[in-house]
Structures are given as structure tokens and as C-alpha cells.
Design a protein around this nucleic acid. Sequence first.
DNA 1: TTGAATCAAGAATACGTATTCCTGAATATT
DNA 2: AATATTCAGGAATACGTATTCTTGATTCAA
Lengths: 342, 342
Amino acid sequence: MRVTQQDIARLASVSQATVSRVVAGDARVEDEIRERVLGVMKSHNYRPDVRARSLRQQRTHLVGLVMKRDARDLQGDPFFSMFVSEILDYLSNTPYHLCVDIASSAVSQTNVYDELLRTRRVDGLILVESEPRDNRATRLQADHFPFVLVGNPGEAKHLHSVDNDNVLAGAIATQHLIEQGYRKVGFIAGPSELTVSKDRVEGYCQTVSSAGLRPRIWYSDFGFDAARSVGLQALSSEDRPDSLVVLDDFMAMGVVDAARELRLAVPQSLGIVSFNDTHLCNLVPGGLTSVSLNIREVVRRACGTLLRIVEDRNEEPPSRVVVPCALKVRGSSLRTPEVALA
Amino acid sequence: MRVTQQDIARLASVSQATVSRVVAGDARVEDEIRERVLGVMKSHNYRPDVRARSLRQQRTHLVGLVMKRDARDLQGDPFFSMFVSEILDYLSNTPYHLCVDIASSAVSQTNVYDELLRTRRVDGLILVESEPRDNRATRLQADHFPFVLVGNPGEAKHLHSVDNDNVLAGAIATQHLIEQGYRKVGFIAGPSELTVSKDRVEGYCQTVSSAGLRPRIWYSDFGFDAARSVGLQALSSEDRPDSLVVLDDFMAMGVVDAARELRLAVPQSLGIVSFNDTHLCNLVPGGLTSVSLNIREVVRRACGTLLRIVEDRNEEPPSRVVVPCALKVRGSSLRTPEVALA
DNA sequence: TTGAATCAAGAATACGTATTCCTGAATATT
DNA sequence: AATATTCAGGAATACGTATTCTTGATTCAA
């Protein structure tokens, strides 16, 4: 049977209120009584009921993670693992727990919204969003619900967001290839409607333009196979690019495979730079140069902000954090390794 | 402000109890009144408070996922993504949500146990466990708490478990290599104390013995780099193996890289079979042969069982499910592709 | 037509906790 | 010594819902 404060109170000959005070560590309770209560609690293995506590305090100590992504797509996606494990890592030092929900469709988006928030299951939300048209953020704002958007807030102003500087990331990757002596720098992007694609393409375009080069852009679906076939196509074109910036590591693996099939040596005949700097980068011989988005930092900032606005009932003024990215140079872009390492 | 059943009741000129009945879909409420209440609910955007409901019903509709694993290790681990996304997929058709906790140390193990269960944060638990010495299962049993163990229950008897047949998996992988004509079949295992290592090694040993071959076993830590260096070592030994069974896909990638460095052609000079059949298998040229553990099925059985025992307050007699595995043949083990494909 | 039976819906209660309010005693202040 | 102040801890209440108990009305059987 479940042991409650009522039981402890009876056994320690005090009132339930006193037990509650002991649990809360209230200073205004006599040492002798505190000891007695603690003793009974310990010997009866008492633990407070988080459900009652949630109701009473209007706080569940749960935060939600919502991503709009097909469950299928998650399987090969290191981003998801990294994101979740970083969140868990952060929360492990707090009284909060994580409730994960993946919304794959518009319908389930709404469901998630209703289920998690309006029913008050979670105290706050981390919303990973890549489509600006999405109206979830707007709804959350309207309800004055504590949440942090991970991604580009676009026009939306009065909300908390944490984002990578994807424009800069695109620029850095491109600039690096140019500095390595590549002149026909192409870009293999993901679905064109995604902000992440747009932003990185923008950084890429700015940079090639500044260098007096011509932009060459291909759009691909996510995933190894899709990127591989787009890569084959791009590299088979006359006037083929001598280097490619690829939207993520996983897609880059596909491009590497395409290059292998076409017998294009990496990095001599084809330089490759991608994004995310996941473990995948170590799987190709020589390594894959990748722009680290510093997910750990993104998560830490997002969680920090979220917990703060949860605690203060969303009083903190909206903040917009941009986490810098850093190029992690490996073999796939080092045309002149000896020079570069010198 | 938060709108409650009390508010709805007032506005619809009924009692709060009636509102509750309407919410519950109780048939014994007059149509006219029901309509009126529903109307007010809709126009005021009412949603039940899951916290109050949890307290009243003694049920949170949350299930927990607990894995004992270092948060760091998760990053490159497709298993985690697959597992979580399959659970989410399953739960999306139920009223349950998922609370994820990763316990990295013995301390946090206890914390998780206390935090999630004894505080009644979750209704039930999926426990992914690979170390038999672990006493969490025992404690859960003692508390009569609904949980399903994913992994080998070992001696533990009266508990629900879902497991792969890892002994069989080890045997299948080994048998396949032998059938392909390999004779010096080695095994690169993970940490020797893990059940998953032990079981697969056992299947491996049985099979090589039956074939009159000598077992060659190396133990490695998890991860690409560790497996890579153990692979180098194994393949550098005099009388080196002509094929290797590797504990998981990720480690197998490391072994592939080791083979590449030693200029051993796969599959001609070195056959490789691994486990899990993740997306990584498609990243090596020709593909990586892998034993699919059918995680989807494991998860579905585990979730199904868990939800049943949660619903019936753990009355169902303990079940032990063993999910069969299946070999997914790809290039890394096909010494004779034409024959095999014929 | 009367008593029993059915039933819709309100009143009351419980879930377990945190907290406000209150009381009586002890200490401080003059 | 008398009044003011502090304070430990008990009593009562609220959080929002589900459910049992109760009641008044209606239906049914005789």
C-alpha cells in the first residue's frame, strides 16, 4: 500500500502539515520533531506523490520536447540522439524530467499541442522547428505558454529562441573550400522550404558571390540514398563542381559514396564539407570536414532559458540567442594537407 | 486564466459533476444538457487538467523509458533513436506519453528509480538492461511495480521480459560466414560483462565448435575507435581471422576501417557480419551484412505488455517473449555473390 | 392509484499535498 | 509584572477531477 504524509503524521504523532514542512525542509520545525518525522519517513520508505504535488503546486516538473519529424526519419538521425541526450544531461541536475513527443503530421501537431500543454502535462516546451509557416509558435504565444523555439524565429518577434547561425555556417563552409583552392563550389541542400536549407544556402550564395564565383545549387531530400543520387547527378554534369557543401553529415555520406562510384578522389578531385559534425564524420577515410553546430551549447541555452521562464511564469523578456558554429576540419576538404597543417 | 469544470458548470447552469460526466462520455446524461455543456466547453476552449486527473485516477498516463547508458555514448547510437522512435510510434495510438530517463551511474539509477516510480510519476516502465547483476528489476518486483524488461532476464523468473534471441543471433551470423566458405571466423565482442556480449559469444562458440573450428574472441569497448583498434590488432595477428562477427554495426564500421587500412579486401579477404541492421549498414560500399534484431517488434511487444499490465494493475501472469532475429545479407559477407544471388 | 423501481443530476467526498490561517505558549520589551 | 512579539505546529482549505451518495421526479407494475 501507498504510504502518505497522513500515515507518517499518525505514526509520528504530528499533523500532516508538519510532515509536509519537514519534506519541504521548512526551518521552522523543532529539531526533535524533525528527527522523529524523518525517522518514520525513512523506516516507512516514504516518498512524496508527484501527482498530488503537481496539482497543488500547479507544476509538473516535466518539460516537453516536440519535433516535427517522421518517426521513421529519426532512426538514422544522429541529431535526434544528440539532442535528446544533451537535454537529459542538462536536466539530470535539475528536478525536471523530459517528455518526448514527435509530431509527424499536422494533425498530430495539434494533438501534441493539446495533449501536452492545454492539459497541463508539461510546464514548458522545447520546440524544434524548421518550417516558418508552422503556426505552433504563434499558438503557444497566444496562450502565454512557456516555450523555447530551437530554430530560426523568422519574423516572429516576441518569443524565446535559440538558433545556430546557419547563414554564417553556410558562409564558413563555403569560405573554407574557397581558401583551399576550390573554385567550382556547389551546394547540395535539403528540401527548399526548410529554413535551415534557406539560411545555409544564403550564406553560401553570399560567399561565392563575394569571391566572384558562380553558385551551383541542387536540392535533395534528406537521407543517404536521396543525397547519393543527387550527388551522382551533380557530379555527372558537364562542368561539374570541384567541391560540394552538403546540408548534413548523413547526406554527405551519400555524396562520398557517389564520388567513390564515379572514381572521384576526395579531397583531390572533390572537396566536401558538411554540417553537424556528428560521429559520422569519422566514418569516412580521412574524415569528413563539417561545421559543428555546437548542439550541446544550443541545448544548454535552450534548457536554461526554458527553466528560467518556467520558474518565473514567463515574465522574462524574450531573448534571441544565436550560438556560433565552428568549422571542424578533416580530410575531405584538405586539398593541401601539409600546408594546412603547417 | 485556466478554465475548469467548475467554470463550465457555472456557465452551463449545471453541476461540476455533470460536466465531468460529459467529459467522460457518460451515457446517463440528457442530450439537451450534454449539448449545452459541450457548447460551453468548446466556446471556452476547455481541456481537462491532466494533473488533477492523475491524482484522482491514480494514473498519469506516462510510461518511462530507462536505459543504463552514458549520455555521451548515446550520441552515435542508432539503437537509441530507433528504440525511442518506435516507442513513440506505438504510443501515438494510445493515451500514453513517454518520459525518458537515462541512468549513467549507479547513483542515478537509484535516483531514476526513486524519481520516476516511487514518486508515481509514471505508471509503468520499460527497462533496458544488459547487466544481470543489476538489481533494479528485483527492486521493481519487490514493489509490485508494472515494468517490462527488455533484455535477458537471466535467472529472474517472475517478471515480464522481451528479448532478442541473442544466442541464436550469434549462431546465425557465424553460420552464415561458415556457409560462405570462411574458416577462421573470429568474434569481436563488446565489454565481456554484458549479457548481450555473452549471449552472442555463446551462439558463436556453439556454432564454430559444431563446425569443427576454433573460436577466436576479442573483447572491445563500444564505439568506432575502440573497435577499430581491436580490429587492427586482431587482423595483424599471425594466423589472422578470415572473417569477423562484430557486436554491432557501429563497431563493425571501425573494423571495416581497420581492414581498409590493412588493405584487406572486404569480403574477399575478410568477411564481416554485425548486428542491429541499422542505417549504418548502407554506408559501407557493398553494404554490411547484419543480423536484424527486429527492434520494431521488440518495442511493440514490450509496449503492448506494459500497457496491459498497467491497465490491469499488474495482474497478468509474467510473460517471457523472445523475438526472432533475421539475417540481412549484404556485400560484406558475400564471398561468392553470383552464387548467393542465383 | 399506490408503492416499487428507474434514473438524471446535484451534493458531497476523496485523491495527497502545500499553504494560509489560527492558537497557545514562550520569549522579549518596557 | 504586564503587554507585545515571536514562533511551533495544528486545523482548515484549495488544487481540479472522478465517483459515490443522495434526492426528487418520472415510469412501471400491481
